[in-house]
Simulated assay, not measured.
Amino acid sequence: MYKLIALDLDGTLTDKNKNILEETKQELIKLAQKGIIIVLASGRPTAGIFKEAKELTLDKVGGYLLSFNGARVLDYKTNEVVYEQTLSSEVAHEMYDRAKAFGLSPLTYNATEIITEDIGDHWIQLESFTTKMNIKHVQDFKKEVNFDVNKVLITGEPAYVAQILDEFKAPYEGKMSIYRSDPYFIECMANGIDKAASLDVLCKKLGIKQDETIAFGDGYNDLSLIEYCGYGVAMENAVDEVKERANYITLSNNDNGIAYCLKQLEEKGLI
């Protein structure tokens, strides 16, 4: 029997308009009320997941927010930080310099806002729309970011990001976790951070076995999660690498793919 469901948000839990479809919402609320643990596992900052957590009533039934690709894990009901890894301000500044050297746009976050010099960047505007967080436009990124951060996010045109990614991250191999999530995002976090590693910490804390977990995902940063969980499900709209490694491919995020799969598992008595 599966006891925990880990869900990526963008392209997975939410549709093309960044909304949770009603059928999917009701299915997840029903399972949460039965005692299934819901984990929202996203590259988004913590505050950028609150809307979806509230919609799924995780403040009442309980659940966890695995944010910044796993750099922070929060018990949403109690507000307890279960796990956290940060980058020093000095490392954040270094990532800023690296981004600028490649002609890319860097950003990071405080508790409630996106911090960047590049307010006109299309992909940064998209991050603001997705997370429902305002942009704090600063003149001097390094002067503003004088605190530890969970993540530095770097944006660029997808084709260019794919072209330079290996060169960009080469000096940090074994020192930091740097990888692509969406085709236009490079995620920079503490070494060893990914969704699966943080979910493993949470599962051990909760006494849940790896083969008792389900994951849904669509993007490059979901690969570890799909491989880690007992039942890894790729959305129909997922990138090919995720589909290749999944146990099952469900319908798309615009077609209630999560609900469709979970109902099948319920019928088989697996959840």
Rank of each mutant, 00 (worst) to 15 (best):
D166W: 01
V145T: 15
E157Y: 15
D211Y: 09
Y172L: 12
K169S: 11
M235Y: 03
A196Q: 07
S198W: 01
S224N: 13
K205F: 00
K143N: 11
I226T: 11
E167K: 15
G230Q: 03
P171Q: 01
S224K: 08
E212M: 03
K175F: 04
D182I: 01
N191S: 09
K205I: 04
D166Y: 01
E144A: 15
F185K: 01
Q163N: 05
C203H: 01
N191G: 08
C188N: 12
A162W: 01
K136R: 03
V138M: 09
H137F: 02
V233P: 14
G230N: 07
Y172R: 10
C188Y: 03
H137T: 13
E212T: 02
G217W: 00
G232P: 15
A215H: 10
Y184A: 14
I178R: 01
D140M: 01
F185Q: 09
F216N: 09
N146A: 14
N134T: 14
G217P: 07
Y160P: 13
F147V: 08
Y228R: 07
G192N: 12
E187H: 05
L223G: 05
D182R: 02
S198I: 03
L223C: 02
N146G: 12
A238Y: 06
L206I: 13
I186M: 10
G217I: 00
F185N: 07
D148W: 08
A197I: 07
E157N: 10
Y220C: 05
D148Y: 12
I226G: 12
F147Y: 14
I154G: 07
F168G: 13
Y228C: 07
E227L: 06
C229I: 12
N237V: 06
M176H: 15
I178Q: 11
V149K: 01
S177V: 01
E157R: 06
D222L: 04
N237F: 10
E173V: 09
V233F: 11
L206Y: 07
S198A: 12
V201L: 00
T213E: 06
E144N: 07
N191L: 05
L199G: 07
M176Y: 13
A162L: 04
V161Q: 08
G230R: 06
K151F: 06
C229Y: 04
G230D: 11
V201K: 03
A170G: 09
I214D: 11
Q163L: 05
G219P: 09
K136E: 15
D140Y: 02
K169P: 12
N221M: 03
C229P: 14
G207M: 00
Y231K: 04
A159C: 02
I154V: 10
A170E: 14
V145C: 11
K205L: 01
P171H: 04
L206K: 03
N134K: 05
V201Y: 01
S177N: 06
K195S: 08
F147W: 14
G192R: 13
Y231I: 02
C203L: 03
N191K: 08
F216E: 08
Y231W: 11
D182G: 10
L199I: 04
T155R: 08
A215E: 10
G230E: 10
S224M: 03
I208Q: 07
A238G: 10
D140E: 12
C188Q: 09
G156C: 11
N221D: 14
I135T: 13
A190I: 01
M189S: 15
L202W: 04
I164L: 02
G232T: 06
